[in-house]
Computed example of a mutant assay.
Amino acid sequence: MPLQVGPCDPWPVDLCCQLPDDLDPAVVERWQRVASHILWRMSGMRWGPCPVTVRPCRRACLQEAPIRVSWGAAGPWVPYIGPDGAWRNASVCGCGSDCSCGELCEVVLPGPVYDIAEVNVDGQVLVPEAYRVDAPGRLVRVDGECWPSCQEMAAPPGAPGTFTVTYRWGLPLDEAAIAAVSELTCQLVLACLPPGTKGCDACRLPGNVTRVIRQGVQVDMADPTTIFSERRTGLTLVDLWLSVVNPDRLTSPSRIYSPDFRRPRVTTWP
Rank of each mutant, 00 (worst) to 15 (best):
C8G: 13
Y257G: 11
V27A: 09
G234N: 04
V209F: 02
W40P: 13
S149N: 13
C8I: 03
G196P: 06
E145M: 05
L3Y: 07
Y114D: 15
E183L: 07
G216W: 11
W169I: 00
T210R: 14
W87Y: 06
P264Y: 13
W241R: 05
L237P: 01
V28Y: 05
R204L: 14
G170F: 01
V165S: 02
R263Q: 12
P160E: 07
E106H: 15
Y131V: 05
A65N: 02
P247W: 13
L173V: 14
R33L: 15
A73D: 15
C50L: 04
Y114E: 12
R46Q: 15
A26F: 07
A74Q: 13
A73C: 02
P148W: 08
C186N: 08
A86L: 13
M221Y: 10
A154C: 01
M221C: 11
V27W: 03
W269N: 00
P128A: 07
L235P: 11
C17M: 09
D9E: 15
A130Q: 09
L188Y: 07
C50K: 05
W241T: 03
L240Q: 14
P83C: 01
L23K: 09
Q187I: 08
P12Q: 07
Q18Y: 05
C16N: 12
T197C: 07
G199I: 06
I38W: 09
A179V: 13
T162E: 10
I227K: 03
M221D: 00
A86W: 01
P112R: 07
E29A: 15
Q18S: 13
A73Y: 08
C186S: 09
T225Y: 03
L237C: 01
T210S: 07
T268E: 10
I213N: 09
R249E: 08
D21F: 01
R262I: 12
G170K: 08
C105Y: 02
E118V: 06
G216C: 06
C200I: 03
M42A: 13
P7A: 15
L188E: 04
E118N: 04
T251Y: 03
Y131T: 02
G82C: 04
I38Y: 09
A26C: 00
G144M: 10
D174S: 08
P136D: 08
S258E: 08
C57A: 14
A90C: 15
Q18P: 01
A117G: 06
M153Q: 10
D115M: 06
P51N: 12
P7M: 12
A130M: 00
R68W: 10
W147C: 07
T185I: 04
W147A: 06
E152I: 11
R249Y: 01
S36W: 10
C101V: 01
W147E: 03
P56K: 08
L15H: 06
G199K: 00
G85C: 09
L139H: 07
N89D: 10
D84Y: 00
T233H: 05
P83G: 14
P264R: 12
V165I: 10
L193W: 09
